[in-house]
Design a protein around this nucleic acid. Structure first.
Lengths: 230, 230
DNA sequence: ACAATAGTGTCTTTCAGACACTATTTC
DNA sequence: GAAATAGTGTCTGAAAGACACTATTGT
């Protein structure tokens, strides 16, 4: 364990764990069990352990597992946040990561795990608010031209469900025909031979799953879903 | 100055300084004046100074200025590279930045400053080769939909010159009409009321410069120059 | 049969690339 | 006037969005 003092740079990782609940992006926050900011809600984070971690990415995966019990199939470096003022203990570096998971794998909301909608963030310690906002920017812009949002779905899902996920992430409706053309172009899905009943009276939708090659990496488009962003 | 030992994470910044020479991207490498890898060519880099640097970005700008004399109008964080093995002194974090500058502001190639073509990189110490490759990926993909390559031009330039710069970065020809439509759409340039003579006999081209608002930040497109990449 | 949603065919609009034409300079 | 490159007008083809139509379920 690093022993921070005035001579040393504090080196940590933080994880922005995102999920979709009721068609809204939510971020997982934990109640801090130690100083500084004890009892405040903050991103899951912790020191890099030079004795066990082979990289910051390892540290992020370890922290996420230790603090939430989750192993995320998608975990990507976001950016590093640095400076003398962001942590009261001293000059610090936080290497931030983001992860997307289906709501179904989240542990029950208790034990200090809070899932809060990203558009109703409470005030957060350190510069965690800024980190979350950077993560949202990244997720939204990557969702325009990649398969990233599929990590918010469970093992299997229908195309209408997947489209709703994209629409929730991007915050606006997508043309159905174009969406299906793009999904086809991405080539990331395979049909499963069972179907799905909609709860009510209608034609059932085909279930799909991610192809094996894309379980842990993205598929990219040249041209993007042309949901206006900018 | 941090005093690295087995207990401490070594915290540094490295800068990938890119420029265009003879229509080819080049990276600036310096001969290291101390161990480890004394006398090897490497990226300009150095320790974060917690007594003077207000952020890693400050550290990168300082290192760049100290080692090359350059103040780059565009300097962006690339990613952080971490692990126990990348630096022989111990577990290290390098927060990497990249910068683009016109060749004209580079100091004379001596005093240990080397400008080498990116497709003929020598073997580099640490994981600097990987850092350079990440920077190239980033620059190329951002060049598809932003004004990034203008930082490779000087104060003023013509549209044919700018197009050549984009083509050099992207490594393939661009349609002239489309390019001009996109430049116009980006809205980042303003005409200067002098013209430019081409060295030989032809119609002179209008000179342009970056609008003030874009001197230190990019302009982005929704749709990109459709130079095929991926 | 009707309601409801899945899935597709096709027309229209928008945008990128091809190409040719005009413009302006030097020789 | 010829050569050379700057700059533009316009046509063509590709891709995105609109919209309507068919398909398949439960009630």
């Amino acid at each position: 364990m690093p022993r921070p003092d005035a001579e040393t740079i504090i080196c940590t990782v933080d994880v922005v764990l995102l999920t979709l609940r009721q068609d809204q992006l939510h971020v997982v926050l934990l109640k801090r069990d130690r100083e500084p900011f004890r009892n405040a809600l903050a991103l899951p984070g912790g020191y890099v352990h030079i004795d066990t971690d082979q990289s910051a990415s390892d540290a992020a995966a370890r922290v996420l597992l230790e603090k939430t019990g989750i192993v995320s199939p998608y975990l990507e470096q976001l950016a590093s946040f640095t400076g003398p003022g962001r942590d009261p203990r001293g000059w610090s570096v936080s290497i931030a990561y983001y992860a997307l998971v289906p709501e179904s794998i989240l542990p029950a909301q208790d034990e200090g795990i809070h899932v809060v909608p990203v558009n109703r963030l409470p005030s957060l310690p350190f510069d965690h608010k800024s980190i979350v906002e950077h993560a949202l920017d990244r997720v939204r812009s990557k969702s325009l031209y990649s398969s990233l949002p599929v990590y918010l779905c469970g093992e299997s899902f229908t195309l209408p469900q997947l489209q709703a996920v994209y629409e929730s992430v991007l915050g606006e409706p997508i043309n159905k025909v174009s969406f299906r053309r793009k999904v086809d172009e991405l080539g990331m899905l395979e049909a499963i031979e069972g179907e799905m009943q909609s709860g009510r009276a209608n034609r059932p939708a085909q279930l799909y799953r991610l192809r094996r090659e894309f379980r842990h990496s993205l598929s990219m488009l040249d041209r993007g879903l042309n949901s206006r962003m900018s």
